[in-house]
């Protein structure tokens, strides 16, 4: 029972969605299923919040090391949740001022927006920006021209790095634009690499992945691959 029901759900949903591509009469079934999927995806956000709460509450009650940080997580979590769920400080929708809950919780000036603008945004953006530093460090310590393959990788990277800035233009601007060697200008060369070599490599990867996805999807829908239910079989 624990295994059979999910397998049937997967198979039925999958079958409906696949045939809705080919039998126009069943198209609306597919639409319903994908809309439900979106709703469930939104519920998954709630699940994410709930799991977070559970994990950190446990950490605090166990007095695990770093439980103070769990307090911070819980504190910011509940504060954000409160201002968002209860629409604290949100003015009503100007078209319906008599409905107090009609306001836009993400609108500029609301406390929820404040959390986004001054906490969420700088934190996530800075986390991402740190990559520039790591990439520099990796360049110095990890990218070695160990063999021919690595030389190809690094050489291509150099051409792209130079060709996509003013430096590339500056270095090879002496090559005439309409002469037979115009293709050697770095900005031209980088375009050529992208459109031929990169396209060829990525095309093979894309075709391979498409086959892999089709194969795996098939196994999942037929119940041959049950790893998503946990466990190997």
């Amino acid at each position: 029972m624990k295994r059979i029901v999910p397998l049937w759900i997967t198979a039925i949903v999958g079958l409906v969605l696949i045939i809705s591509n080919f039998l126009p009469g069943t198209r609306s079934w597919g639409e319903e299923a994908t809309t439900w999927f979106g709703i469930i995806a939104a519920v998954a956000f709630v699940l994410g919040g709930g799991s977070l709460l559970k994990v950190h509450l446990k950490k605090i009650s166990d007095r695990n090391s770093g439980w103070a940080y769990s307090m911070i997580v819980l504190g910011t979590f509940s504060a954000t949740l409160a201002v968002g769920l209860f629409k604290i400080g949100v003015s009503p929708n100007p078209a319906f001022p008599d409905v107090p809950w009609s306001g836009d919780v993400q609108g500029q000036g609301t406390p929820f927006w404040w959390v986004y603008e001054y906490v969420f945004k700088p934190l996530t953006a800075t986390m991402f920006a740190m990559l520039a530093f790591y990439i520099a460090s990796a360049a110095f310590r990890a990218f070695r021209a160990k063999n021919f393959e690595a030389v190809l990788l690094l050489g291509t990277a150099f051409i792209i790095l130079l060709g996509r800035t003013f430096a590339g233009y500056f270095m090879t601007s002496w090559i005439p634009v309409d002469g037979p060697f115009s293709g050697l200008r770095l900005e031209e060369l980088s375009v050529y690499i992208m459109q031929v070599f990169n396209t060829a490599g990525n095309r093979a990867i894309i075709i391979g992945i498409a086959l892999g996805i089709a194969g795996t999807s098939l196994k999942i829908l037929m119940g041959l691959d049950r790893s998503y239910l946990g466990g190997g079989d």
């Binding site: 110095f140 690094l154 430096a167």
Partner: peptide, 20 residues
């Protein structure tokens, strides 16, 4: 932003060459 981009690209190339 293409300005910092240029200098940083040159730095990256320099770092890879120096590292190697």
């Amino acid at each position: 932003r293409m300005g910092p981009q240029l200098v940083a690209h040159l730095l990256m190339i320099g770092l890879i060459i120096a590292g190697n």
